[in-house]
């Protein structure tokens, strides 16, 4: 009996299906699916439902595959940060080699299948997204510059452009502005997170802005990007996919977001420590509502247009 128990405790952990699925970062994938779907639906060209479903699935798989490659490369620092210690590789359920194999295989499959299901432009943008996230952000910028979040955010901002390209086969001002919205949203979103999980990034020696330039500088940067974000958000409202409903939502969300960023700017670190970063946590939650609210409003605008309402 003793022998058997000893075996149970020391046996290597074997991955279940869920562990491999966790490599694909399902929570990030939900953002990719949602924004790509909105990009596809608000485009002026109709898409066959099966083609739309397949395309969104392959975009999601491509995004998930880049997440697996990110976990493969970052396994060493994931072991150091509390937030990432339970991921499949640091916890010992999946080996680094397995993560790499899954990431590469799914990346190639997703790009080829998106090319077959949709078109070369969409497939090319997906391939660029994977390359940018894995090679430019994960391998290069993340550990070398505090601007990692800003430039790396481009990868997370591309899905609505890919969705738009699936429908139209091209790129336009609307899709570029949808990209710009997510791109400008990413820094305040992640820097707010960095303000209340500060020790983790420092332990892993990731040059997060809070570590390299200090927390006050981070507060100023959050406010500056929030203002830039408002400009992009309102500009999108004046394009063919915008309208009064979108504008209403955008004005309200930007007012809340700028107010939140102003509150963060005016706080000292002592204030922040005193209430356990309540304002920063609230701003982080608001940032999620901000992005989903904007893309949701674009969907509403398109739906209204089918009934002769919506749009300018």
């Amino acid at each position: 009996m003793t022998d058997i128990r000893a075996y149970e405790r020391t046996a290597p952990q074997e991955a279940g299906f869920g562990d491999y699925f966790a490599l694909l970062k399902p929570r990030v994938m939900s953002l990719v699916v949602f924004t790509a779907l909105v990009g596809l639906i608000v485009a002026p060209t109709p898409v066959h439902p099966v083609v739309a479903l397949a395309s969104i699935l392959f975009i999601a798989i491509g995004g998930g595959a880049s997440g697996a490659l990110n976990m493969w490369w970052d396994a060493d620092i994931d072991r150091l940060m509390r937030r990432t210690q339970k991921r499949p590789i640091p916890s010992g359920r999946v080996t680094e080699g397995e993560a790499f194999a899954i990431g590469i295989t799914l990346s190639v499959m997703a790009v080829v299948m998106l090319f077959l299901a949709a078109n070369a432009v969409a497939a090319g943008l997906l391939a660029f997204t994977i390359f940018f996230y894995v090679c430019v952000y994960t391998m290069w910028l993340k550990r070398s510059t505090p601007q990692n979040i800003v430039i790396g955010g481009a990868a997370g901002a591309l899905p609505p452009m890919i969705g738009w390209a699936v429908a139209t086969g091209g790129v336009s001002v609307e899709s570029v502005l949808m990209f710009a919205l997510t791109f400008a949203w990413t820094p305040p979103h992640f820097w707010a997170l960095a303000l209340f999980v500060k020790t983790d990034y420092a332990d892993a020696k990731v040059p997060m802005l809070t570590v390299t330039h200090g927390r006050d500088a981070t507060r100023r940067q959050i406010f500056a990007y929030t203002l830039a974000l408002a400009v992009v958000s309102l500009a999108l409202g004046f394009t063919s996919i915008g309208g009064p409903a979108y504008m209403g939502v955008a004005v309200v969300l930007n007012a809340l977001f700028i107010t939140g960023a102003w509150g963060i700017l005016k706080r000292s670190d002592a204030d922040s420590e005193a209430d356990k970063h309540a304002a920063e946590r609230k701003f982080f939650k608001l940032s999620l509502a901000y992005l989903f609210g904007h893309f949701g409003a674009l969907l509403v605008e398109t739906t209204l247009a089918h009934w002769g309402l919506g749009g300018w």
Partner: peptide, 28 residues
């Protein structure tokens, strides 16, 4: 149990993939 969950999961994914490619072919 973990191996079984892996095998069943992969089987379901492959069946869904075949179904998707079939549907895509019909749609195209």
């Amino acid at each position: 149990r973990r191996r079984f969950s892996r095998n069943v999961g992969l089987g379901v994914v492959l069946i869904l993939f075949v179904g998707l490619v079939y549907g895509l072919t019909i749609a195209k």
